[in-house]
Nucleic acid binder design. Structure first.
Lengths: 147, 147
DNA sequence: AGAGGTTACATTGACGCCAATGTATCGACA
DNA sequence: TGTCGATACATTGGCGTCAATGTAACCTCT
């Protein structure tokens, strides 16, 4: 018999856990000299370049303006390149630089190890279930891989 | 057969969904003229007053310094009261004011409705499963109700 | 009593993030 | 061609958050 929980309880627990995990993640990635959002962006661009800014924002779940600001800093730091799209000059295509690609590789490893550590208490089935539930919750705002 | 997912995929999905939900939550609560963190704090104090600052931070999942700053603003706004503990003069006991209690009631209702709306796509069993998983993930940093 | 380590809270500087808004480009249509 | 709404990105002001650190009270042990 599943203990019945209210939606508010779920929200509280979700919010609390999310914040705790974010702190731990930042702590782990800090050892690589980078913050979670920055590494997340660079790794995502490396994975699916060239990528438009708005697509990138959608993929990582942040607002477009936030992505713009963060990307700006990453470009200044020489990790990403902006390139105006030939077909649509409003669009910006993002790619990693050589330096960005190298760091992305290091950070991906750190990211994966941090994730394994944080989700270690879950069984494989729980992880799969969790992902299903998360995708259900964010079904409205899903990148192209939606299907 | 559960699709196997990597820890990094879980982390990505978790982070993305958390940010999306936070945005939606803020949007809903904005209609009540309050932000999610502020309402969350006031409601939590109303629920378990008197409560120490650090306990409160743990309950909502934020760092102690963050709680201090937020509480400061809420005290200035007349929603919360600080009171130095008689037994341990380092400690601060928090309570809601009359105004804070009234608003907490309104916000609790808004909070609950927002949560119901956001978690509406989940079945009762999924919600229960989700809470189990979340508690497992944050088992290290659990308030006194730890069990 | 008082020295030294510990605990509870406050403060600070920097960052991530948002909503709202501004600017340039695009596309359709008169 | 020029106009108008829509789209893609950039900018801005403000909040929430953190880690790191400071200050005061507590506790133990001598």
């Amino acid at each position: 018999m599943p203990k019945s929980v209210t939606a508010a309880q779920v929200a509280d627990e979700f919010s609390r856990t999310a914040k705790i995990l974010v702190r731990h993640f930042n702590e782990r990635l800090g050892e690589h000299g980078v913050s979670t959002p920055r590494s997340r962006l660079v790794v995502e661009v490396a994975r699916s370049q060239p990528v438009r800014l708005t697509e990138l924002a959608l993929a990582v779940g942040i607002a477009q303006g936030t992505a713009s600001t963060l990307v700006d800093a990453l470009v200044r730091d020489g990790l990403l390149e902006r390139q105006t799209s030939a077909g649509d000059r409003r669009s910006v295509l993002l790619r990693v630089t050589a330096q960005g690609a190298a760091l992305a590789q290091d950070w991906t490893a750190g990211y994966e190890r941090a994730a394994e550590e944080l989700f270690e208490p879950l069984t494989a089935e729980q992880m799969s279930t969790l992902v299903d539930i998360l995708r259900t919750l964010s079904a409205d705002e899903t990148p192209a891989t939606g299907g």
